[in-house]
Write a protein that binds this DNA or RNA. Structure first.
Lengths: 151, 151
DNA sequence: TTTTTTTATTTGTATATACAAATGTTATTA
DNA sequence: TAATAACATTTGTATATACAAATAAAAAAA
């Protein structure tokens, strides 16, 4: 659906405005679909994100600011996010012995297991929308989004 | 910044995944910047959205489901959003005389005034990122986002 | 006309998010 | 060394969001 139909807009719209609305609406479609996948696993998108970051550490502990920095949307509350993961035994948390201000967060085997379970579904989700585009268009879309942001 | 730098990702990433992350990250940049503008007006992005929809009604009342339907992200709580606007005298609300299940929501002069104040800033915001693209690229980006979604 | 179904909105509750202030630790400087 | 500043994280609070259940009115069916 074109964005004008989505918003039931009657008046013609500036193309700059259309880009903004297209990005916002596309994001909400992507997120809704992804949350649908996560639902049966009882974790939120942000929690999944943290787990993915921790797996990426390949055994090295991550601290709070490192996790925060690697997240897409700056959540401002990594503590409570990690709290939730801790309750489900997806991560461990301990004070860093060298610098007791820092916290070392590690993913557990249970956390790795749930990610492994999710992996094929996540890949399928990532490719779902891209299937509508040719490989040239995919490259072009990435290029334009990055150029759009650069300022 | 390329999305890999944003996420400090070391491993190469599939282009489909890149699109998803690019859209999510771009949306969060757009929203952050827009919230910055709204901050001094003491309304949230969603509240602004409702006001814009009401102005688009050109004097005709809107009911709750109509507002909900026209919003980008399905908020599931138009009632409380309208509550907030009511407290600030940006809207009026009354029961529809023909069908007492329905609610008639109208924007007030005060609501119209704040929108008018915001209008130039909103336009500036909409064009801010697009300035990085040529007019052909702007058209192309809209086209690709709509094609990407279509499925 | 009573009962049932559908429609429109509101409310309850749990969780998420934003932002500022507070806490505890380490580093710097007077 | 004591005081101050910087750093890393946590906590408090207000608001936002998601989802289900509740309410209330109107329409349809028995």
């Amino acid at each position: 659906m074109k964005i004008e139909e989505v918003l039931k807009s009657t008046v013609p719209m500036d193309n700059s405005k259309k880009i903004i609305l297209n990005i916002l609406y596309t994001q909400s479609m992507i997120t809704d679909k992804f949350n649908e996948i996560l639902k049966s696993y009882d974790i939120s998108g942000e929690q999944y994100n943290v787990l993915r970051i921790l797996r990426g550490q390949k055994g090295n502990p991550a601290n709070m600011s490192m996790i925060q920095e690697r997240m897409l949307a700056k959540t401002s509350n990594t503590t409570r996010l990690v709290d939730k993961l801790l309750l489900k035994d997806f991560v461990t948390r301990k004070v860093c012995p060298e610098n007791r201000r820092k916290i070392e967060v590690l993913i557990t085997q249970k956390g790795l297991d749930i990610l492994k379970d999710l992996d094929p579904k996540v890949i399928q989700h990532e490719q779902f929308f891209s299937n509508n585009l040719s490989s040239d268009e995919i490259i072009q879309l990435n290029y334009l989004l990055e150029k759009f942001r650069n300022q």
